[in-house]
């Protein structure tokens, strides 16, 4: 006999965002480095910043940092990246 169930799963309609357009080159671009504030993130990002400038001729690197890795980035941190008109963002995720 068929069984009818009340759907117990999430049915909230979520809007889909479109992917940002991809960069063909990093040369002359502004790249934001987002440190999520885990220990060692700055070491990783210092090295990434140096490589971006040396190897990929990135024009400008800006740094932003979340106040805590346990929560999503607050609007002020995202706003700083948007205000700087960054072309790309690299996030330091791990310890």
């Amino acid at each position: 006999m068929p069984i009818t169930l009340v759907n117990p799963f999430d049915e909230t309609l979520h809007t889909r965002g479109s992917q940002a357009s991809r960069l063909s080159s990093l040369e002359g671009k502004t790249v934001a480095l987002l440190d999520i504030s885990k220990p060692g993130g700055n070491i990783f990002l210092d090295r990434v910043e140096a490589l971006l400038k040396e190897r990929y001729r990135v024009e400008r690197v800006i740094r932003a940092m979340k106040p805590t890795f346990t929560k999503p980035a607050p609007d002020a941190v995202i706003g700083k990246i948007i205000e700087a008109k960054a072309d790309a963002v690299i996030e330091a995720l791990a310890d």
Partner: peptide, 8 residues
């Protein structure tokens, strides 16, 4: 919530 009908 939607209703889910499952057959045998």
């Amino acid at each position: 919530a939607s209703r889910i009908e499952l057959d045998d």
